[in-house]
Design a binder for these strands. Structure first.
Lengths: 140, 140
DNA sequence: GTCAGTGCAAACCCTTTGCAGAAAG
DNA sequence: CTTTCTGCAAAGGGTTTGCACTGAC
């Protein structure tokens, strides 16, 4: 299992390098906890995971690292709640189902959801993404 | 024009009462500035508008009032940016086009945008809304 | 006089920034 | 040695909360 651990470390390191990210101790630590977890995670949750292990990493570094990973395409930010950054390790095109009562966030496969009728854009403007959030609540 | 002003005050007061909101001085003041402005506005922008006039209202009250108005259906919250609550005075079904470079936010008529393939929901869960955000940026 | 409802100062929490220090050239 | 990059303490800014106060009955 220490072997598995070392293997994971190597995998993460390689992945960072492949994406042009210097694999520092903190980043590898964060990456190991990140890619081995739920698909949706906040900086706080990740910080807790990292420091529950052996890693000693500050909150600011977790934020900065998540931002860096997102900029490099290893992560995607999901905007469903103001005042809360949620990151998604699933970077393929897909949408989200968000339960406002429980905070539960689930993926909806992109191919299941079809959007038509996008407006024409003026020149000089390009689409970076179409995000669909289906908001649900517990009936009552 | 003082007459118009008084007419607006009456209209806003009536509207609040109709929606089950006690029309206090602060709320009417806020409402007058709110329904007579751009469709998309943040608490900060609204506070500035209110206090540029005669109104003396604290920031906290603006936040609380916006939250109350939204809960009562006079407003709708638009989630396009984490760390920033934007309110929309247009409460009819529609979607948004968001320019991440300029912060510009525009409406897309709901009838122009068709979504199909929503997943079946388990019982006890109901949809409160389907929000589509088309993110764009200035090309280059 | 009592009680529900309101407004705001202060507290809170998430995020960003500025800088000391490390690593690379 | 100089330059670039990294990590984090402290600062920042948007939002919420707890309580004094007001108005209604």
């Amino acid at each position: 299992m220490n072997q598995e651990h070392e293997q994971l470390r190597k995998d993460v390191t390689a992945r960072l390098v492949r994406n042009g990210i210097t694999p520092t101790r903190q980043r590898v630590e964060i990456g190991m906890r990140l890619f081995d977890c739920d698909k949706h995670i906040t900086a706080d949750q990740l910080l807790e995971r990292v420091n529950r292990g052996n890693g000693e990493v500050s909150k600011a570094t977790v934020y900065n690292t998540l931002g860096l990973f997102a900029a490099k395409g290893l992560l995607r930010e999901v905007v469903v709640d103001p005042g809360k950054q949620i990151f998604d390790t699933n970077v393929s095109p897909h949408h989200h189902l968000y339960n406002v009562d429980t905070g539960e966030l689930r993926d909806i496969e992109s191919r299941d959801l079809v959007v038509s009728g996008l407006p024409a854009l003026e020149t000089g403007i390009e689409i970076t993404g179409v995000d669909i959030v289906v908001r649900v609540r517990n009936a009552g």
